[in-house]
Design a protein around this nucleic acid. Structure first.
Lengths: 360, 360
DNA sequence: GGTATTTGTTGTATGGCTAAACATAATGGG
DNA sequence: CCCATTATGTTTAGCCATACAACAAATACC
């Protein structure tokens, strides 16, 4: 019960637009001021919350002490992409404390060498963060199918990688069971679902389509990413658009990626929009979430894609007369996956804050 | 906290294969025997649980009192299908206490007249149930898109119905805000997900494909139906299989229903299997649940459909090398939707058992 | 400067839990 | 047949986190 309310208070503070006082938290949670006060104090001493200076009083009465996410808590987020390597330290308020991004064509690269380089970048970035920050975990975003339990990358066609034991290839301390590995689209979607760790973004239910050379996707329901049984959900890139279409690297034919992947898109935006519309209609028919958010190279081409996408979706989505589809664009951030990887680490902390709070 | 543990004890008893004793519930939940004893007593006096006679002792020690779902608690489940009307009273143990099923072609029928007849059937069936049963709610399964909040059927092409205010057309006492209306596939899927109210069925994560003249579907994750934002999820029947395919009643072209609907299936099972495989590959790519359960007319043709379905899915599902797709068949029950409607009512009760238990 | 108002803290009471002791009902061995 | 053994279910005492109420602190309004 204490654990449950500890989570509740922490979540309420992080979800708020403006730093709330203890009394405001009590009002929104339904707990009493005394209970919130006690729990908030524990969270402050645990470093998960910070007290800001009393703001200039907005009205009568004693002004409250604004509470915000603790700036001393941080996580490392890394990303391997066909076009770059990235590493970031992000704090619990969502601020990037330090980062490094190295462009370079990694298709057909050697996993051992690339992960060694990523390890060096990570170490440098961690050192660059303020000495007082406590790193609570590390995450990595990769463009492919992952076995999350074992931290293994099963298949990443656009890197030319297959069955890579990521945890073992990263330097000790970085890898190991403490590292969470996940799909890039899934993690990038987190940065749309959350404006900062624990704070809801502009949409709570949407399908994120990630254009990172290939085409990936992620399902967000009620603000949370739905990863599926094994974390492989959202693979929109290999939905069949035309059963007689061009062969795909996955072994099938006519996959969306063959129309809306970076190379295909450059050749014919019209066709890419049509194919996206057909595939996304299936998504909306299945999931009943009319909001689509485009990321990566698809975000750049959004204005050219939108008419075709909407036309096909309006025709093919059964519920479109009652709930018209809506195509939005994600904020520009080349390494959104890295930030998302850090957010995922924070989610584990927010689920069990008691572990970071002094007992009793 | 009491509410939470009340739910926990009730759920544990209902989920068990064999009627558990208080001590067994304590062991599986982690609560103490004394706590379970108190909560179980409350549930028994509330009628949600029954005590069975002490079974012949299986070993040494004092034999426990077996607990089962209360037989006095029941719900009415109704179903409108293109081929029949059905009404059932189902108790909390999942037994059908009374039922009525009237075949008849309802395509192009008059909603007002049909719902009047269904009302009469429901009344008769309710009277036929033992006088001691307490009816805790009523549910209705319909083959179409529903606005659950308002109990309105927005569109049911295979009945030829559109925008039918179901709650208002059913006789007072039956309709009204107490009636829950939902899609047939969603409710039939509940009878696969649960062997009895609260007891898990053979699969916990699967996609249910309902063949009831048209083709519907439902997503089941971790034993619970995922209805989507507005309850419209799972509409697999209108996923595009061939963008140049035959026109569909929904206004699009090449929808799965045009290949695997009852009429099309009778003409060419081969083609239906191919189309199902293409559409279900999209489902699995998106949702990462490799188990497919076929119901209705698709269940009857399952053996003929399976080879084609599996062939297409294995080619088109990205994760199939690691997790091969699996096509199963639902148990035969023409009015599974009616039972599922009753189960849905029970779920509301199981979520808030305190409302049926005497206070304090 | 006094009063009203709101925040945060400090004591007290309470509800539901755990833990331990006890009563109950069976088995099995001498 | 009687008694030790074993397991279930109930009773009792103690405890923890919460609600409730009273109070101290800090501001605005008159």
């Amino acid at each position: 019960m204490r654990d449950s309310n500890l989570r509740l208070v922490l979540a309420t503070v992080l979800a708020a637009e403006e730093p709330p006082s203890r009394a405001a938290v009590a009002a929104t949670t339904g707990l009493t001021r005394s209970t919130v006060s006690r729990l908030a104090d524990e969270l402050v001493t645990g470093g998960l919350l910070d007290e800001l200076d009393r703001s200039p009083a907005p009205g009568r009465g004693r002004p409250g002490t604004p509470l915000v996410a603790g700036s001393g808590v941080a996580a490392l987020g890394m990303q391997v992409n066909p076009g770059f390597l990235a590493a970031r330290v992000v704090d619990l308020r969502g601020r990037v404390l330090s980062e490094d991004l190295v462009p370079g064509d990694l298709s057909g690269s050697d996993p051992v060498e690339v992960l060694r380089r990523l390890g060096l970048m990570a170490r440098t970035v961690e050192r660059a963060a303020p000495a007082s920050t406590r790193l609570v975990g590390r995450g990595l975003a990769v463009p492919g199918l992952v076995a999350a339990r074992h931290g293994r990358l099963l298949s990443a066609p656009n890197l030319g990688w297959a069955d890579v034991p990521i945890r073992r290839l990263l330097p000790r301390g970085l890898g190991g069971s403490a590292l969470t590995v996940a799909n890039e689209a899934e993690l990038a979607a987190r940065t749309v679902a959350a404006a900062a760790p624990g704070r809801p973004g502009p949409y709570t239910d949407f399908f994120y389509v990630s254009g990172e050379v290939g085409v990936g996707g992620a399902i967000v329901l009620d603000g949370r990413v739905f990863g599926g049984r094994y974390g492989w959900a959202g693979e929109v890139g290999h939905i069949t658009v035309d059963t007689d279409g061009p062969p795909c690297s996955c072994g099938s034919r006519g996959c969306l990626e063959q129309y809306a992947g970076l190379r295909a898109l450059r050749q014919d935006v019209e066709r890419a929009g049509w194919a996206l519309g057909v595939a996304l209609a299936a998504v909306v028919n299945l999931l009943d979430i009319p909001t689509i958010v485009l990321g990566g190279h698809l975000a750049h081409a959004a204005d050219a894609l939108r008419p075709g996408v909407l036309r096909e979706m309006e025709q093919r989505v059964l519920s479109s007369p009652w709930r018209p589809p809506d195509v939005r664009v994600a904020d520009e951030d080349p390494a959104a996956g890295a930030t998302g990887a850090a957010y995922q680490v924070f989610d584990q902390v927010l689920d069990a804050p008691a572990s970071l709070v002094p007992q009793r």
